[in-house]
Design a protein around this nucleic acid. Structure first.
Lengths: 341, 341
DNA sequence: AAATTTTAGTTAAACGTTTAACCGAGTTAT
DNA sequence: ATAACTCGGTTAAACGTTTAACTAAAATTT
């Protein structure tokens, strides 16, 4: 039999209100009474009923997490880590995360996530790119929302983003510091703000170092930044341009493709060509050589997003904030001082 | 302002009880009244408050999902798919899934998942291997529990497992059907029931085909079934045994390692050696050649587990059931009829 | 036609909290 | 000595449902 606040009150010989005050520290209670209540709580193994609290408070204590199927099921557990970050922080903040995945082709008539329809959440976290029409249909519900790793066109809500520009700078500077000047950029979909910012960082670093930006060192014509496109991009680049000594791939997936091509075609990494990626996915460690990259703090992104959301939930005022999470150079074995030929 | 059952009752000019009966279909209501209530519900956009229902029913409507960090963050989204399966089914069953990950080295003094301590769940799903002492500490709470892809030593609960034996049979039969007789088995940790069942299937298929089982064609001395160990296992096997024409790897990770070794060392797959894996992970498609494998229906496993749990939740009697989910041969390009040398 | 059963609905208690309003006893200020 | 606070607590209403117990009218049985 589960014990209730009544049992505790009876055992401690006080009213249930007093017990509530002790639990929530919401009104002064004499230390003597307090300790009696605390003892009763312990001995009865009392835990307040969430349902009752929710009912009276009008809150649910839940936060909805929305993500597209394909993002969540990506081979690299990028968004999985972000989700786990929100869950970690939710633990300390006393919330539960309700996750739902949606089809990336969310249709006009597809039902909204049920936790929205059923009033089962107090706020929403949206991770990664999400269909515009879904956002439009959610907004009438007036639920505080935070976006992670995506800038919706509506520009309505607090954002948690990767500092991609800074990452591009750091990566390129690292190669420059190693003495490289013929540095290629292997990218994709330039419409994607994350990727274009990384390219911006690349260009800015070259400018700062007074190294001319050559367009024939930049490949961005793939649609998706994946392994296959990395492989093909470096292939076409090297066919036209033999004197590349370093490559900055816009993410690790492309970097792995680049590495495969280089390994397959007699280039030694890092002796002949230095290679740096972006993201720091687990697979990097299993490569030969292990990949130097820019680490994106995924767990931390989830944590920050949840903190942001809980703040607006508590303060009732949704400060339209934008958090750029810092990235970090992870130096492994795929980059090296330029060798004299 | 959210509308409540009272608003609906007023609008439809009935008592709140009648509204409740209509919603839950729990008592006969005249069709005329019913339609009036339904209309009121629609026009007011009424949705029942979960908290209130939970409070009065004593249930939470939530199901806890427990998994170790490392399983959940595995590169291949195996458990992520399973989780998503439970979430899909939870949608139709009207439950929410509360996920928590735990450290695989769960210590004696580590706190239990908070949804257990706070009575926030009605039942538990546990996916993958989980520390024994955690199971022991959960059981006093008497929460209906279902295990997925793991057989706890306590043998206490319904199970949803992969039909590994059948899979081993199918895989091996496929190679036999292609004319192979020198079929290697690349495995690992024979303590793990899944892997040993796959080996059992392998042996049984050979027996059925009257092909002698040769121990020098079986490698199971690695601890973990990963790429590196796949690479090394096939290496040592081929150094002693030149006439292998087909390989059954106990999972796709090992198969990828095997494929890497074969590609690196002048063996053509499938011309020289046929290769089949197990699991059907996404990476298989990106391999060269794409890997023939045994598909494990991950989403379905999640669905089955949730159905099982909901059943025991409703019937109150925990039928100690074991569900073996069927596997399926996925023929791609890494297996071929044996070529005459 | 009276007695009984069925139908369609209502009333009110209960679930376990929070919290506004209240109260009596000390304490302090006048 | 009295009025006005403060302190430490209690009482009771409210949150939004479900459901057992009840009732009035209609239908059925005797």
């Amino acid at each position: 039999m589960k014990s209730t606040i009544k049992d505790v009150a009876k055992k401690a010989d006080v009213s249930i209100a007093t017990v509530s005050f002790v639990i929530n520290d919401s009104k002064h209670v004499s230390s003597e009474t307090k300790s009696r209540v605390l003892k009763a709580i312990k001995s009865l193994k009392y835990h307040p009923s969430k349902s009752a609290i929710n009912l009276v408070s009008g809150k649910t204590g839940n936060i909805g997490f929305i993500i597209t199927d394909d993002h969540f099921l990506r081979t690299e557990p990028f968004y999985t880590s972000i989700f786990l970050g929100t869950e970690f922080e939710a633990r300390t903040a006393g919330y539960y995360i309700l996750l739902t995945s949606i089809n990336p082709q969310f249709g006009k008539n597809d039902p909204l996530p049920r936790f929205i329809l059923n009033n089962s959440i107090d706020g929403i976290i949206i991770a990664g790119k999400i269909p515009t029409n879904l956002i439009d249909r959610i907004s009438p519900y007036n639920l505080p929302t935070v976006f992670i790793d995506y800038i919706p066109s509506q520009n309505c809500c607090p954002l948690v983003l990767i500092d991609n520009l800074q990452g591009g700078l750091i990566a390129t500077n690292h190669l420059i510091d190693l003495g490289h000047t013929n540095i290629a950029f292997i990218g994709a979909d330039i419409e994607h703000p994350s990727l274009s910012d990384r390219l911006k960082g690349y260009k800015q670093a070259l400018e700062n170092a007074k190294i001319p930006i050559k367009n024939n060192l930049i490949v961005t014509d793939s649609k998706y930044p994946d392994r296959v496109n990395g492989y093909n991009s470096i292939k076409s680049l090297l066919s036209k341009n033999k004197n590349v000594t370093a490559v900055f791939a816009c993410n690790d997936a492309m970097a792995i493709g680049v590495l495969n091509y280089l390994n397959d075609n007699g280039y030694k990494v890092p002796k002949d060509i230095s290679l740096i990626g972006f993201d720091d996915v687990e697979a990097d460690l299993m490569l030969n050589p292990p990949l130097t990259t820019i680490r994106v703090p995924k767990i931390e992104m989830g944590i920050e997003a949840l903190k942001l959301l809980v703040n607006t939930l508590k303060n009732k005022k949704s400060l339209l904030k934008k958090i750029l999470v810092p990235v970090e150079l992870i130096e492994r074995e795929s980059t090296l001082t330029i060798s004299k030929k």
